[in-house]
Write a protein that binds this DNA or RNA. Sequence first.
DNA 1: TCACCATTGTTGCACACGCAATCACCGCCG
DNA 2: CGGCGGTGATTGCGTGTGCAACAATGGTGA
Lengths: 163, 163
Amino acid sequence: MASLSNETQPLDQTELRAWRGLLRAHALLVKRLDAELESEHGLPLTSYEVLLHLAHTDGGKMRMCDVAESVLLSRSGLTRLVDRLERDGYVERVQCPDDARGSFARLTDAGRTKLEAASSTHLEGIRAHFLAHFSPDELSLLAEAWERIAAPGSTPGPPSCSG
Amino acid sequence: MASLSNETQPLDQTELRAWRGLLRAHALLVKRLDAELESEHGLPLTSYEVLLHLAHTDGGKMRMCDVAESVLLSRSGLTRLVDRLERDGYVERVQCPDDARGSFARLTDAGRTKLEAASSTHLEGIRAHFLAHFSPDELSLLAEAWERIAAPGSTPGPPSCSG
DNA sequence: TCACCATTGTTGCACACGCAATCACCGCCG
DNA sequence: CGGCGGTGATTGCGTGTGCAACAATGGTGA
């Protein structure tokens, strides 16, 4: 057991549970929530997140690159995802008047309807599978901790086009 | 804004930050750690995790299905991953004597060497990007919270072959 | 002993995604 | 005005993954 004590000693039991637990919990939660959305509404989780972000904006439209950043996808990944959403009629691309390069993804009425139908499922899933396991204090702690992780200047990447 | 108050009201600010923060932090951490391992050792994170789990066993070998469960992969996914690891010489398949259907994935000397080399990078990454942002108390809290999430009987799946 | 179902690992197939290249366009500086 | 680097979105290509189907084997009950 001394073979690994070269430079960095292994994690202690709590550290290991905190880290591996994060991986496992994330995988579990995403799988559960995605399965629920998919089975009840035929909507993958990533698609739902795009619709959700669009719905939170004025006019229901966002620049493609902003959507990509919001849902943690590459631009190419978002292009294909919006392709699918457009094919299903939930969003439509509209030309950006101020910048001929850019496109908006805009929520359609069908997309808004779909989102509203799916949101109950998703919110209940988040509450049941995730929020229910934390006290309000713990949630506040978590919320701040995540921002500490995201904040540091490690490969954050510049804001984006709309910034 | 009253359009979503149909059945389930939206998350409050803290809930939202706790939930979306989890998604964002996970994505960020996995990306960072994977990039570090890949660039410094040419080893993807999932491959590393397989080697790590194997190293923690007696004899450095595990049943394929147990490895799959440990690293949160499907059996087919693990088959391909072990294909790659075997091609790179880090593991080898050995026939299970008790069960002609089964195979062990066994860590080779090269795999153990690779793991030891990569472990410093990975451990330092976990400490720097994740553990550093939490106090010991917070880590304990996290460790227990993850187990609350994983524990409930929601699609847990039966133990497995080695159980 | 044999029939039957469960389980293990692999494979065919499809899909979602990222990277790099590409094209069109913006803004700036000379 | 013209050139030039930077940016937004798309596309080609490769990769990693899951699902379903499959063959081989184990285990159990008649």
